[in-house]
Every structure is written in structure tokens, then in C-alpha cells.
């Protein structure tokens, strides 16, 4: 069994028995998709809410919620997953610092969560669990045996969602 590591603004898909993980989500959001019959799991580490924020013509699809979620769905389907069976989970979207003011940078975590939810909704994929918000970093690992998502944070109990 291998643990496939996904970096910032990267995504990937794994089949049973491998697991897929990303480390240290702060304001970023980890979105996972799981097909329980094929036992295929996908994950993307989203950094920003919308491709409207992108400057320059070439951009990395895995970085922006509105391009990352459809791209992950496409990868899942190519690996043999059935869109109708897919269930999504979300983690991250924290506010790591508070420095007064209400600028859009500070709220980037909440905006990322909203944008990921919107993208999933428009694709008709139900969100079955989430561990989002707060002010702490999270490491997540998706188990392809069960679809369970483990969420680890410093100084907090491990969560399984």
C-alpha cells in the first residue's frame, strides 16, 4: 500500500489499497471524491477560489476551485469512477492569521470553501462530510478501502470524517 502525496495546487487519483494525502492545509482546501464501488479516491489541494483571480494566460487548473473540482472529476472518470456514485468531502479553509481589517486576503480560506462547495454543487456531487474553518492547519488522508477521510491537526484529536 502506498500513500500518494499531493502538494499545493496539485491533484491526484488513487485506487485501492493506496491512500492519498496532502499536508498542512491552511487557508487552502482539500477536496476529495470517492467512488465506493470501484474504491477509487481523488484529492485536490485548492489554493484560490476562482480562475477570475488568475493573471496571465496559462494557469494551473488544480490551483483554483472552479477549475480544480471539474478537473478532478474528469480524472476520476478517466480512472473508471462513475460520476453518479461520487461523494465529496472537504477539509481546510482556515484563517491562519488575524491582523485587523477585513481584507479579502484574510478571508481567503472561507472563500475557498464556498467556491469548492459551489463547484461541487454545479456538478451535482453531494458533500457528505467536511471539517473546515477555524484557525489551524490540517493534514488529510483519504482511505480508499472505506472512503474515510482522516484529519490531523497539531494539538487536536485526530478526526475521521
Amino acid at each position: 500500500m502506498a500513500v500518494i502525496r499531493v502538494g499545493i495546487a496539485e491533484g491526484g487519483v488513487v485506487g485501492h489499497p493506496d491512500t492519498i494525502s496532502t499536508l498542512g492545509l491552511g487557508s487552502c482546501v482539500g477536496v476529495t471524491l470517492y467512488d465506493d464501488r470501484k474504491r477509487i479516491g481523488g484529492m485536490v489541494h485548492v489554493m484560490l477560489p476562482s480562475t477570475e483571480l488568475a493573471r496571465g494566460e496559462a494557469f494551473n487548473k488544480a490551483k483554483f476551485a472552479d477549475s480544480a473540482v471539474p478537473d478532478l472529476l474528469g480524472q476520476m472518470i478517466r480512472h473508471g469512477a462513475d460520476q453518479r456514485r461520487l461523494k465529496a468531502k472537504l477539509a481546510g479553509g482556515a484563517q491562519m492569521f488575524s491582523y485587523g481589517g477585513e481584507d479579502s486576503l484574510l478571508k481567503i480560506g472561507a472563500r475557498n470553501v464556498d467556491a469548492c462547495k459551489k463547484a461541487l454543487k454545479s456538478l451535482g456531487i453531494p458533500i457528505v462530510a467536511e471539517d473546515t474553518g477555524g484557525s489551524w492547519g490540517r493534514t488529510i488522508e483519504l482511505c480508499t478501502e472505506t472512503g474515510m477521510l482522516e484529519v490531523r491537526a497539531i494539538g487536536r484529536d485526530k478526526k475521521q470524517i
Binding site: 499536508l23 498542512g24 492545509l25 487557508s27 487552502c28 492547519g137 493534514t139
Partner: peptide
């Protein structure tokens, strides 16, 4: 903040 480097730096 005191937390994981990834969480702090990515922000």
C-alpha cells in the same frame, strides 16, 4: 501563529 509550516506559508 504556531502551526504547520505548510498552512502558514501557503496562506
Amino acid at each position: 501563529a504556531m502551526d504547520m509550516a505548510g498552512a502558514i506559508l501557503a496562506f
